[in-house]
Amino acid sequence: MTLWPLVIPFGDSSWTLPLSASIAIALLLGGHRARAVRWIACFGAGLAVIVAGKLAFDLGGWCLPALGFYSISGHAMQTMAIYPLLFMLLFSALGPRAARCGFLLGLAASMFMAVTLLAGNYHTLSETLAGMVVGAAVVCTYLRWQLNLRPAHLSLLVALPVAVVLLVDMHSTVNPTKAALWQRAAIWFGATEQYTRQISTDPVSGTRRVSVRVRSLS
């Protein structure tokens, strides 16, 4: 058994959405209202790009098979956007140098997620890189932030998302919501087909193959 399925949930929306909300709340309570709003806006814009890309493929079949590009990796985007800021804020209690080390640790975590996505056949290289690029665009908005939050506010960064995940079945909440929104989007755009792609590795040659399936919505 590999460790990849254990790592993937840390980039899933059922975990990253509460985590992104906890960052905004910690910034807001710490007196950084403008930065909290900026974080929500930038992270929301990143999510919008991911959703737009997935809709383009899922409902329209838009893709670049020659590049192995079918949709932008939301896992790669969210980990790249969230974890550098998360660790930077947590380590900031120890000083500016520690905050920079935290930022680098967050980048390392996002890189490990990228490797996991590739090794586990969750995404192709181009999809993963595209997600990292979108996440990096969000990262660039807070590279020069020098924040000093109180320990009580810093504790929210971990305590709040953990509490949400433990008290609320986020998978049972997020996944049906996604499915309902996708159905609504199909109606809005008049889509008649839904596209899905699957990545597999040949056990003999080790060659990775991508297959696209089309399902009629009518």
Rank of each mutant, 00 (worst) to 15 (best):
M77F: 14
M77D: 03
M77T: 13
M77Q: 11
M77P: 04
Q78P: 06
Q78A: 14
T79Y: 08
T79I: 11
T79N: 11
T79P: 03
M80S: 10
A81S: 10
I82R: 01
I82A: 05
Y83W: 11
Y83L: 09
Y83F: 12
Y83T: 01
Y83K: 05
P84I: 04
P84W: 07
L85V: 09
L86I: 10
L86K: 05
L86R: 07
L86S: 06
L86W: 14
F87N: 05
F87L: 15
F87G: 07
M88H: 10
M88Q: 08
M88N: 04
L89S: 00
L89Y: 02
L90A: 05
L90V: 07
L90C: 05
G95V: 07
G95S: 08
G95F: 10
P96C: 11
P96G: 15
P96K: 14
R97A: 13
A98L: 04
A98C: 05
A99N: 04
A99T: 05
A99K: 06
R100F: 15
C101I: 15
C101V: 15
C101R: 15
C101L: 15
C101D: 14
G102T: 03
G102R: 02
G102P: 00
L105G: 14
L105I: 13
G106M: 04
G106Y: 03
G106C: 02
L107H: 09
L107D: 10
L107E: 14
A108V: 15
A108L: 15
A109K: 09
A109D: 09
A109L: 15
A109Q: 10
A109W: 13
S110Y: 06
S110F: 02
S110Q: 06
M111H: 15
M111R: 12
F112T: 13
F112Q: 10
F112G: 13
M113K: 08
M113N: 05
M113Q: 04
A114K: 01
A114W: 01
A114H: 03
V115C: 15
V115F: 15
T116C: 13
L117G: 08
L118W: 12
L118D: 08
A119V: 14
G120M: 11
H123E: 06
T124Y: 02
L125W: 04
S126A: 10
E127V: 04
E127S: 06
E127Y: 03
T128E: 00
T128Q: 03
L129A: 12
A130R: 01
A130T: 05
G131M: 04
G131N: 01
M132T: 02
M132R: 02
V133G: 00
V133W: 00
V134R: 00
G135Q: 03
A136I: 06
A136Y: 11
A137W: 03
A137F: 09
A137M: 09
V138T: 02
V139G: 00
V139I: 07
C140S: 12
C140I: 13
T141P: 03
Y142C: 09
Y142I: 03
L143G: 01
L143C: 08
L143I: 06
L143T: 11
R144G: 04
R144S: 07
R144Q: 08
W145C: 03
Q146W: 01
Q146N: 12
Q146H: 08
